[in-house]
Each structure stands twice: as C-alpha cells, then as structure tokens.
Write a protein that binds this DNA or RNA. Sequence first.
DNA 1: GCTCATATCGTAACGATTACTATTTAAGGG
DNA 2: CCCTTAAATAGTAATCGTTACGATATGAGC
Lengths: 156, 156
Amino acid sequence: MNPIENISQQFAAHKYKLTRQREAIVQVLLDNEKEHLSVEEVYMLVKNSYPHLGLATVYRTLELLSELHIVEKMNFGDGVARYDLRDDTHAHMHHHMICHVCGRLEEIKDDWLLDLEKRLEREYGFTVTDHRLDFKGTYGTCKHTGCKRDKEKKAV
Amino acid sequence: MNPIENISQQFAAHKYKLTRQREAIVQVLLDNEKEHLSVEEVYMLVKNSYPHLGLATVYRTLELLSELHIVEKMNFGDGVARYDLRDDTHAHMHHHMICHVCGRLEEIKDDWLLDLEKRLEREYGFTVTDHRLDFKGTYGTCKHTGCKRDKEKKAV
DNA sequence: GCTCATATCGTAACGATTACTATTTAAGGG
DNA sequence: CCCTTAAATAGTAATCGTTACGATATGAGC
Ligand SMILES: [Mn+2]
Ligand SMILES: [Mn+2]
Ligand SMILES: [Zn+2]
Ligand SMILES: [Zn+2]
C-alpha cells in the first residue's frame, strides 16, 4: 500500500476527513522525508501545490498527524518544533545521529534499544512504549575539515 | 569536594564571577536535583533566599550554566525549557524514564549506551560526544491504578 | 578611590504558537 | 436536490516564553 493511501485509511479510521489541504501537507512531508521540517518550512513548501493554504491549518494538521502517530513532534533546541515522519513498520521512534561540526542529521531506523527495554522491564518494572534517542558527535569525515556549516545556529 | 565548591572552580576557570545571585540560583538547583525545573520555577524558588533577584538574571545564569555543561537544557514538550543538573562523574548525559500514566520521571545515571557508541564508531565512523535518551512507558505499579496525574498536561 | 569590564535589573520587543470568529465545506436525512 | 449540522479552514488577534536593550550597580586590579 502506498504511503498516502495508508495515511488516508488512518484518517478514516479516526473519523477525520482527508481534505485537499491535509493531503497537500502530507505530500510535502512525504516528498521531504529526509528533512525535519518546521511549521514555517512546511508552510512555504505547501504553497507550491496549494497557494491559498493558511498557516493555522498547517499548525492544526501537523498537530493532528502527531496525534495519529504519523509524525513525531520534536524539539532539537533551535526554537521551533520540527516534524518527523514515523516509520509504520517500527513500533518505536527511530534514532538520530547529529554532527555538531557540520550539522548533518542522519537516522537509524532499526531499534537498537530492544535489549535495554528488556532490562528496564526486569530491573525497574518499567514497560517501554516509545523512546527518543539522539546521539551527538562528529563524523570521521568532519573531524579535521572545515565543514559547510560551522555551528552557525546557536542552541535555543 | 562539595558541589558548590566544584562549580565555583568551573566559574573561575572560565573567568566568570560567582556572584551572590548566581550562587543562589545554583543552590536552588542543588537543593532540587530530583526536579527538572523551568526558569519560572527556579525564579519562584530563588526568591526565598534572594528576594530581589530578577527574572532576566535567571535566564542568563541558566544559559551560562548550560554553556559550562553544569546543567543540560532540555525540552520535554510542555512548552518550557527545563534545566537538569549533569553529573560530573559521567561524560555523557544521563537517561530518563517517563511514565505517561502518572507523569513520574526517573533517572538512570549509568551510561547504558557505551556498546552502541562503539557500534556507531565502527559502522558509521561517528564519534559520540553526548546523547539524549528518554524512555516513555509505564511503571508496573501504574498500569491498572488511577495515578495522581492523569495526562493533565497536554504535550506542546 | 578610580577605571573599566562584567553583571544585574526592569522592561520592551520578538516570535512561535494558540485561540477566536467568521466563513466554507461536505456528509447525511428528508 | 435542498436543508441541517458538524467539521474544517482562513485570517488575525492574543498569548506567553524568551531575548534584547539601556541604565545602573558591582568589584577586581591599579
Ligand atoms: Mn528523524
Ligand atoms: Mn534528568
Ligand atoms: Zn524500542
Ligand atoms: Zn554515552
């Protein structure tokens, strides 16, 4: 099943309408799945396919997608919320590697935490339903070279 | 060496003055190390020991403590930044367990990610300098009981 | 005590998000 | 079809956490 069809069904299952506005927004997310777009960025991009769409609708739709667990609302410390498509083949959120030299952000889709989740259950009686794991560091290729971005964005 | 003395030295090493205001703020953090206080909460608490202290000073001081890696600025999705004391005996940030039934938040001070860090180095040439790991789930004691807090705070 | 960089204070400005009101859309029933 | 009604959108005002600013205070070194 293609992604948009899948999402359409999730909308229907929760009695939400997949309006043209919502579909345009979802399409922007699918077309930019490697990015971690902010509301403003989605707003700018969706204008190409739906010029008249309002900013408030982007806010409301992304909130809705978050509620349906289609996207994850994340905060990377730059002052805006960013929305990350979840993979429907994995129960838990994927992991991130963030290079603080060049700013590159890569994803690890496999769940590397399954052993630790068992350990939490054993040692604390804590059942994991989701998680967030971000690694901060540097890529070997970045260590000694002047990378594109050089900490231009101050954490907020 | 007691904590306040230790922090005092870090200030000195970076040519920052440990003013009475800053010391009062640090003391609030030390006295509430189990909490994850917001700026506003620190502001209210510090008024007990230093009634005239200004809000802007709290903002600036917490930012400074973050820069010195004495605290970690975190966002748990409730709309405010929260500040978490780092343990100077561990190089990397500690982990969290967050119960979405009762809202309880506990810490795991040991670094459970050392093996995964080696794997990142091997497989991606990525050297980890820090990380953030939050587990979301439920404690066994919370599963079937009506806990104190019941999702009263909506994620933001 | 004088100088000057550093820090504080109170508040205005900023900007992301939310809340609100009017308007539009579309599903369901006659 | 048309009517009713709930859901969704648009545009914008209000909110609120945070940052920036100008004036004042502090205190280390001379
Ligand atoms: Mn991602
Ligand atoms: Mn903590
Ligand atoms: Zn997992
Ligand atoms: Zn680690």
